[in-house]
Design a protein around this nucleic acid. Sequence first.
DNA 1: GCCAACGTTGGC
DNA 2: GCCAACGTTGGC
Length: 140
Amino acid sequence: MAYWLFKSEPNVWSWENQVAKGDAGEEWDGVRNYQARNFMRDMKVGDLGFFYHSQTEKAVVGIVEVIAEAHTDSTTDDDRWDCVDIKAVKPMPKPVTLAMCKDDERLSDMALIRSSRLSVQPVKDTEWDIVCKMGGLNVK
DNA sequence: GCCAACGTTGGC
DNA sequence: GCCAACGTTGGC
């Protein structure tokens, strides 16, 4: 199983919006970047991801799960763009901010820090565990 | 609101 | 196929 990170501007699509969709989940649409799309094509049902609020909050605020593999993005006619469906799993007891990640040397290689503009990113197992712990979640 | 980083587009 | 111009993103 792989781990990912989904970035969203909270005033466009927030964690609260995602939670409101419940187990039915929602398309992660609107991605118009090849790298991000390719990562989504690699995703499998059951993969987990961080839900990250950019701009105002700059923090990981929750955990999501992939519930449908890549399919055509319904918001465009352009067949280059695929997206997956995700659902909210649980909120972070404590949001993990970008500043906290930057302060932790073990996370210096994270895509979140290295390529801040990428909206869908892979997360390493070790990074996943560290961020979960910082957020007050017990993993494994 | 600014600006750096970076991806995309289009002319050649 | 290169590269300049341009647009967008996101941190500050």
